[in-house]
């Protein structure tokens, strides 16, 4: 494993045929700060020179704002998928010859610090028009281990999508929880993503803490180890009001410090990457 002070080489992401890239999914109750933290972590990685792709599987906008990318409703173009041959289980597959890596290079947006951003699109109500794009997205994500990027994925709030396989790409699931009963209860439910064969590693991030012992409170209530903790912070709150990235608006905040430390830890932690 590379040391915490050296970024993983962008030229050689594979060592002994095994990827050393991060594969992280962010889940949690609504409002806990998933998108904000996912976006900030991705920007930190990218600012350190690492190749990163951010996956947005929420049909509503949020993650792009946290990254500093203009919100767009557009999904992956129709050309990316073709009808699958009859008899196959899925209706669509990626266009012939289109690999996961090629699809990301072609269709992902590029944001500040070179972070790549891929979404299946945003809805103003009806999700049906996004169906082909959703297929493309899921196919791209299914093969994402073959690509050279760190992968940071943000899921919609709650327990529906995580338990429907949308976090399947992840080797590490980070559950963002506030020190409030409903948020911690949600985290406890999401902790079950770590059960079963081939399950990802699951840990918590205690966000918007108000007391020194809130990280412990979250840990006890959720049964999860707390790998980072960030306090309530007026500068972060202001960033959310304005709709600007925390890393740009509040670069010296305890939140950003906590996520820098988390990255150090992740570089050392074997199981967060495959």
């Amino acid at each position: 494993m590379t040391s915490a002070t050296q970024p993983v080489s962008a030229d050689d992401p594979f060592e002994d045929g095994v990827s050393r890239r991060l594969r992280i999914a962010f889940v949690g109750k609504g409002g806990a700060g998933k998108s904000s933290i996912a976006g900030t972590l991705a920007r930190l990685l990218a600012a350190g020179g690492e190749p990163v792709v951010c996956l947005d599987s929420d049909p509503l906008p949020g993650l792009a704002t946290s990254l500093g990318i203009a919100t767009s409703d557009a999904g992956i173009p129709d050309e990316a998928v073709e009808e699958a041959p009859e008899g196959e289980r899925a209706r669509y597959r990626l266009a012939t010859g289109l690999t996961s890596e090629a699809a990301i290079r072609r269709y992902a947006d590029t944001g500040p610090d070179g972070v790549r951003f891929l979404q299946f699109g945003k809805t103003r109500g009806h999700v049906a028009p996004l169906m082909r794009s959703q297929f493309a997205f899921r196919h791209i994500v299914a093969d994402i281990d073959d690509t050279p990027w760190h992968v940071i994925g943000d899921l919609p709030a709650g327990t529906r999508q995580p338990f429907f396989g949308w976090a399947g790409f992840a080797h590490l699931v980070l559950v963002v929880a506030e020190p409030a009963m409903s948020s911690m209860l949600s985290a406890k439910r999401l902790a079950r993503l770590g059960e079963g064969e081939n399950a990802p590693l699951v840990a918590a991030i205690a966000n918007k803490t108000r007391r020194d012992d809130d990280a412990d409170l979250v840990s006890q209530a959720t049964g999860l180890p707390v790998w980072a903790s960030a306090p309530v912070d007026p500068a972060v709150r202001e960033a959310e009001h304005l709709g600007v990235p925390i890393i740009d608006h509040a670069p010296d905040s305890p939140t950003v410090q906590a996520l820098r430390s988390l990255l150090e830890r992740l570089h050392n932690e074997e199981r967060s990457s495959p």
């Binding site: 709650g158 529906r160 409903s182 949600s186 439910r189």
Partner: peptide, 19 residues
Amino acid sequence: CDTNANLGLSLGVGLETTE
């Protein structure tokens, strides 16, 4: 209606009943 149901806590029925 939430898959991740928490209304019981806010209504004041307590954790056990909510679960």
